[in-house]
């Protein structure tokens, strides 16, 4: 089993290829790898629970741990009540911890 950290910086409603990145996360988790998807910058917009047609929904049904940058949430005025309960807020320290974890493969999109 491999460890993957996928960092998504883009808004899925702006860039279609974000769906492929989500798909990669879901597929890796489905084959038994440990996968964390970290949403940052406009990627944080996908954490809103009421966003219509949000492709992140398919990831949230699987075994991927989904985190979102607290700073990015604040910048965009996304309140706790607006966030999907399966998407956990995390600070930049947590991101660095994930990056530095032994054997983790890190991908930025």
């Amino acid at each position: 089993m491999a460890n993957y950290l996928l960092i998504e910086s883009r808004d899925p409603f702006e860039a279609r290829d974000v769906s492929y990145f989500y798909g990669l996360a879901a597929d890796l988790a489905a084959q038994g790898d440990k996968v964390t998807l970290f949403l940052v910058q406009n990627g944080a917009l996908a954490s809103r629970k009421d966003a219509k047609g949000n492709p992140l929904g398919t990831v949230l049904k699987g075994k991927v741990e989904v985190l979102v940058d607290s700073f990015s949430l604040k910048e965009r005025g996304i309140q706790d009540a607006e966030r999907h309960p399966s998407v956990k807020p995390a600070d930049i320290d947590a991101l660095v911890d994930h990056i530095m974890a032994n054997g983790t493969k890190v991908l930025w999109h």
Binding site: Q41, F71, I92, V96, M100
Partner: peptide, 20 residues
């Protein structure tokens, strides 16, 4: 140009503060 510069610098800052 974009928020990526800020995020990059935040990551570097956090890593240095952790003694990395």
């Amino acid at each position: 140009e974009s928020a990526t510069s800020t995020t990059s610098l935040r990551i570097i800052d956090a890593a240095l503060r952790k003694g990395i």
